[in-house]
Design a protein around this nucleic acid. Structure first.
Lengths: 304, 304
DNA sequence: TTGATTCATGACTGAAAAGTCATATAAGTT
DNA sequence: AACTTATATGACTTTTCAGTCATGAATCAA
């Protein structure tokens, strides 16, 4: 009679084990999930084995001296993650707390697009708790697919073509200089050579585009520092110690009355998009119209 | 970091407890779920209390000397039921077994519509295990909404108007008589008075319609027995001991070479419909086209 | 080859939860 | 009031599972 008698007729499955498995999947391997704790290491290893024998399938595979999650493992992890979030949301809702909606994006996007608009986001989504999680652009897509986050904001060019998205508009780049540093010297190109500059550390997507642009324009700026993110660069600009080329949305942080933002038309704009996990939306009781409202709220061009 | 740390940080939730709760919800109250087992009774009572304190909400409410499931309890049960089925399906799939698809319907529908077409149903849905569960018409809708069954087949007039449905066609009624009982005597009405008849026990939806029809036609058949279901009636007809008015689809069981089926046009036909639980379909990896194929397979008029 | 890293496993302990039984409470029934 | 039915609870025992520790096995790198 009872449908799930079968599920619990064999031992080997428990919420704790499922949670352990989730931790390992999220860390990628046991050692990383165990954080050097020998106890956890052995626990994880055993619990995964127990789950494997319960489900009758390999959830992990040995690769060299570490393990990898199999496709089936990822499938299961996805399921468990969603189920746990459902239970947690139910619990939160019962405690009178609002449902959590998680956003994932790069730091600069969090600082300059999301943080300033938390109230509007909450208005668009109803009475929810907004969580902003910082991650690298390349991780955003996977995190949305996994259900670890509900919404992601990233550059369109970082997405595979077939991914469903909502356009938030294009963001260009501008040279930000403190106004008291002296008048801007004619063209942007000239200004770039004139002011001490901070740049991004090499490696990122923007970094190479920037270098290409500099050599194309035959410019040799005076670089006083290389930093890990746009937000760190903005902080330096705010002190007035250097200028920087930043996304135009940095104007949120760099007050136009105190900082001059000179757009650089010849640096190609990048299209920003919003991606969403439909399953999580359902879980949070949100519908497509909520995403529509969110899309409007997050448009990046209206603010410039 | 771990999203679900919070879920397991408090004790009080376990798969066993969730399963117990599910059993109680399905039975409707503790006593019925415990089946007279005092141990289970106390277990259920305690486990539900533990879950209530875990989620911080009343899952049951006392009504008289028994308990009722609250709305929140039903909501949670729905969630748990679906989660358990997901885990079970995953396990079954890993064991090389096919996914289960559950149908719910009245006995006569199972016997005369579903059972004869199991192969076609499996062809329409892919390589699945079909389960046919007998239930009263009025329970079918709730069972689909609950996710206890994936598909339900029932009379359209038993459904609230707003329920989404797929039409399977109309089923009329016919007088079934064994051919060796003698020639059918002119009109159907005359035949009904001529042959010894079996009827349905009073109470059902068809019963009252049938009685109304009889008095309208001023007919007084010779009733030798009243039975609980059409299938039981058909069994009597098959012995040749009596005739009966049955849904036309009873021809599946009553071979036209041996039994005469005389349609009764003046007894209104009833529309049969298929209803589906979209969430379960997703779980089973089925899409709308599968339901379309199923709808075609289950059409009730093509076979007459 | 030696050592470090990563996972697996055996042999335990301890805690949590399930299971058991008797009995209390509470609401209906006769 | 006496009895029945349904649920709750206290006081356990037993089982399961998590947690701990030591150590083995496999892989890789210096």
């Amino acid at each position: 009679m009872n449908q799930s008698a079968h599920l619990l007729s064999t031992s080997g499955l428990s919420l704790e084990r499922m949670n352990s498995f989730l931790q390992v999947v999220e860390a990628g391997n046991i050692a990383k999930a165990a954080l050097g704790d020998a106890t956890k290491q052995s626990q994880f290893s055993r619990q995964i084995k127990e789950m494997e024998s319960f489900f009758g399938v390999a959830l992990t595979r040995r690769v060299g001296r570490r393990i990898e999650i199999t496709d089936e493992g990822h499938h299961l992890a996805l399921m468990i993650r969603r189920q746990f979030r459902e239970l947690e949301d139910f619990r939160a809702a019962m405690a009178g707390k609002s449902v959590q909606v998680r956003f994932g994006a790069q730091g600069s996007i969090i600082d300059w697009i999301l943080t300033p608009r938390i109230d509007e986001i909450r208005k668009a989504l109803g009475d929810v708790t907004v969580e902003l999680e910082q991650m690298r652009t390349l991780d955003v897509m996977r995190a949305v697919a996994d259900g670890r986050i509900d919404f992601g904001i990233l550059r369109a060019d970082a997405l595979p073509k077939e991914t469903k998205r909502r356009k938030l508009g294009n963001v260009g780049y501008a040279l930000f200089v403190a106004k008291n540093t002296g008048k801007s010297a004619g063209s942007v190109e000239q200004a770039i050579q004139k002011f001490p500059l901070v740049e991004l550390l090499p490696g990122g997507q923007f970094g190479s585009r920037w270098q290409a642009w500099l050599s194309e324009k035959k410019l040799h700026p005076h670089v006083i520092a290389r930093l890990a993110s746009f937000t760190q660069m903005a902080r330096v600009v705010r002190t007035g110690k250097a200028a920087a080329v930043l996304p135009e949305i940095a104007s949120v942080e760099l007050d136009p009355r105190r900082f001059h933002a000179e757009p650089i038309a010849s640096l190609p704009k990048r299209a920003m998009v919003l991606i969403a996990n439909t399953r999580s939306l359902e879980r949070a009781g949100l519908d497509a119209s909520a995403t529509n409202r969110l899309e409007k709220v997050l448009g990046v061009e209206k603010m410039l």
